[in-house]
Simulated assay, not measured.
Amino acid sequence: MRTFNNAIVYLSCIFIALIYGCDYESYDGPLTLDIQLTCAEASDLANTAFDNFSNSNSSNLEENCLAYKAALEEQLVACPEAFDQISEQINDLNNCEYDSFFQVDFDNETFLSIDAEAHIGNGQLTITGKRENEEFVIILYETTEGTYQLGTTDADGNMNTASYFPDSASNESWVSVNDGNEIMGEITVSEINYTNLSISGTFNFTGVNNNETKSFTNGVFINIPLTKDNEFFALFDGQEYIDSSIAGFLINNETTVVIIIFSEIDNTNMDFTLDVNTTPGTYSLRLIPELPRAGFTANRDFYYYADGTLTITAHNPEAKFIMGTFEFIAELEIATPQSYTITEGHFCINYGQ
């Protein structure tokens, strides 16, 4: 027994010597133990991280996505019985290597799509979110930022709608339409970014299917890729210029953009020429060698040079999309008449396609 006690004293002395030796630095911080979370605790953390992810904006989307992914990975360890489901959620995040998403809650679950897109054409905005065979489609007869009602008919007979298709290959759907007079939801288009060609907003609606209803809440779409049809408008000596075709293309080894708007009514056309690297801003249109330039062809014999301004409001050379406004006087002294006045002009053009 004495031998055992001596051994304890000896070991204690060694321990004290190690603690107070010259090379030892005391630890002032808290003692951290590696304690595994319970499944309930890990699930709560994942839900909180998901709420943050759901409320993301363009500035914190990636950060919140990575935090949500880390929380799911902790949940995966704590809840092995839900391994397949949680693994699928992690895979759906695509390593957070994206900057847009579309999601909405229904049936106590969340639909999250990283395969979403939007398109503006024919006075209509269409937003689509897809996940495997499931699909959401929102159709608005509005193409600007704002808040709009779903399910009611406007003065022109148009109705904004939101629809959910559980299987896009079937005819089953939940649509925000009741009798055409009842508001069945709302969508807010918070941002249309023509420079980055993206759109963001929120929505909610009640879907109807064979007299049954389903609520779709907390809908959000952030930085959804946006495309837009060609569009042109101008007043020509006070009258609307009726275009028949719009063409945009690249010349000079793709360093120069040329836009031509042709009218079959009077066999005339307008044209714009600018450098492919032209940035948003206001530019003078003059009869000078520098770009940008513009002009008006009255017939095959007379070309009128533009004297006025061109304002580029958005230009995405990578997507080959340009948007702007303009006004100018098209002048040619040797012709009759000597000038034409072009006002209230604006265009959105996809070139080089």
Rank of each mutant, 00 (worst) to 15 (best):
N108T: 12
Y141N: 15
N55K: 13
T143G: 15
S113Q: 01
F53K: 06
L93A: 05
D105L: 07
L140Y: 08
A49Q: 05
E81G: 10
A67L: 12
L72S: 04
I127S: 02
P80G: 12
G129E: 00
I35K: 14
E132H: 03
Q85N: 12
E73Y: 05
C22T: 01
E117Q: 07
D23P: 01
A78S: 10
N94Q: 12
C96V: 06
I35E: 13
V104Q: 00
T128S: 05
D34A: 10
E41A: 13
A49R: 04
A82Y: 12
E142K: 14
F50Y: 12
L93E: 03
G21S: 12
N64W: 06
A42T: 09
I35V: 15
Q89C: 03
G21F: 04
N108R: 11
Q103C: 04
D105H: 09
Y98V: 05
L61H: 08
A67M: 09
D107Y: 02
F50N: 08
R131V: 00
F83Q: 14
T110E: 02
A46N: 03
A42D: 10
A118G: 11
G123I: 15
D28C: 03
T143R: 15
E134S: 04
C79S: 13
I114H: 00
D23I: 00
I19L: 14
T143E: 15
Q36D: 06
Y20D: 01
Y20S: 02
K69V: 14
G123Q: 15
N95D: 10
D92W: 02
L31W: 07
A78P: 06
A118P: 06
D23V: 00
G121I: 09
G121W: 08
D51R: 15
G21A: 09
E73R: 08
I127T: 05
G129T: 01
L37Q: 12
Y141E: 08
N57H: 14
F83W: 10
N122D: 15
E109C: 08
A116G: 01
S113A: 03
C65S: 04
F102H: 03
S56W: 07
Y98I: 01
S56H: 08
E142H: 15
I127E: 01
N57Q: 15
F102L: 05
T38E: 09
N64C: 04
F106W: 10
S100P: 04
E25P: 01
I138M: 13
F53S: 04
E135M: 05
